[in-house]
Amino acid sequence: MRLVRHPVLCNYYVTYRCNARCSFCDIWEKPSPYIQLADVEQNLRDLKRLGVSVVDFTGGEPLLHRQIHEFVGLAHDMGFITTLTTNCLLYPKYAEKLRGKVDMLHFSLDASEKEVHDKGRGVACYDFVLESIRVAKELGERPDILFTVFRENLPDLEAVYRDIAQPNGLMLIINPAFEYNSVETGEQLSSAELDYLSAFGKKRGVYLNEAFIQLRKDGGNHVAAPVCRAASTTLVISPSNELVVPCYHLGEQKFPIEGRLHDLYHSPEVGRMIALEGRLPQCEGCTINCYMQPSFAVEINKYFWQALPSTLKYNVQKGTWKRMLTR
């Protein structure tokens, strides 16, 4: 049964450019412009009309955009829940300007040892993560540690939790890696390793969407009976001010927004693409967290019930439920 029939999330790509070279991502290979403030202002107004509640300013590396603090500030003041994930290379520079404007601030950290983390990210950023934690705490911010899990770094999870997240009073978010297009993430986690993650996710100060684990055990999305609701729950806006449908990772079609996001989303052309969400050939076996997370939140099924406890746990511990009540 569908609970919510309007989009709830916007993945707003401020640029595809990135100052890291992560082995599990290809976005940094793309040429890219930067979004414009006038477009952001108009699109946020339309997102509000469409019923969107969360705006994730993403990239690339979002802090490469010199106006990023203006974007998140505008969205925050309009009542959106704002999120931003950074590799931390530029966070100390922008920290003061971002203060109080990002509801869910995520610092990426995938290993407990500097050499291992920096190798995976293709650039020396481990020390910047630790410095960013210090700076954020001094400013009264409450960032999360976002740990992207692969088979090769699974043994590091405990050390990051014990030595970095817990001593600093930070939430540890477990983000199971996913494959898309030609990007490979190594050998897939076994059933036993997925069970280990499930148990770890129950620790104090740890967030893991349990539905991610079940989806992987089920072989991902299946086109015959799709669980993915990417296009109907999530709007993807490109740095070129295009609506990308059904999702960034497939990017089947791109529609110029031209100041008419609300009407464009309800147009027949976009509607036909929304109807294909989770049903395209490349959707078979998909486990992309960015779109499964909102998909699990809008429809009552087994994934909804598995996702609910961890979602409540995160929002209670972070206090974001207060923002949701005042929207």
Results as ranks from 00 to 15, higher is better:
residue 239 P to Y: 07
residue 43 N to S: 13
residue 261 L to F: 03
residue 94 Y to T: 07
residue 77 D to W: 05
residue 89 L to A: 08
residue 294 P to T: 01
residue 94 Y to A: 09
residue 205 G to N: 08
residue 206 V to M: 05
residue 38 A to V: 12
residue 23 S to G: 06
residue 145 I to R: 13
residue 215 L to G: 01
residue 260 R to W: 06
residue 207 Y to Q: 01
residue 32 S to T: 03
residue 104 M to K: 01
residue 318 K to H: 13
residue 71 F to R: 01
residue 91 Y to C: 03
residue 200 F to H: 01
residue 297 A to H: 00
residue 193 E to W: 05
residue 41 E to P: 04
residue 55 V to Y: 14
residue 37 L to E: 13
residue 96 E to L: 10
residue 217 K to T: 05
residue 7 P to K: 10
residue 64 L to Y: 10
residue 323 R to D: 13
residue 224 A to R: 12
residue 158 E to L: 08
residue 244 V to Y: 14
residue 278 G to L: 14
residue 4 V to A: 10
residue 187 E to I: 15
residue 124 A to P: 00
residue 120 G to M: 01
residue 122 G to R: 02
residue 187 E to D: 15
residue 287 T to V: 15
residue 301 N to K: 00
residue 83 T to E: 15
residue 323 R to K: 15
residue 282 Q to Y: 09
residue 131 E to Y: 05
residue 298 V to A: 02
residue 98 L to S: 14
residue 276 L to F: 11
residue 175 N to D: 15
residue 324 M to L: 15
residue 147 F to N: 10
residue 34 Y to W: 03
residue 281 P to F: 12
residue 7 P to F: 12
residue 275 A to T: 12
residue 305 W to M: 03
residue 126 Y to K: 02
residue 55 V to Q: 09
residue 286 C to T: 06
residue 261 L to C: 02
residue 145 I to P: 13
residue 100 G to T: 10
residue 259 G to I: 06
residue 230 A to T: 03
residue 52 V to C: 14
residue 25 C to R: 14
residue 247 C to M: 03
residue 294 P to S: 04
residue 207 Y to H: 12
residue 241 N to Q: 05
residue 323 R to V: 10
residue 259 G to C: 05
residue 281 P to M: 09
residue 15 T to R: 02
residue 184 E to V: 14
residue 40 V to D: 04
residue 279 R to G: 02
residue 284 E to G: 09
residue 263 D to Q: 14
residue 225 A to F: 04
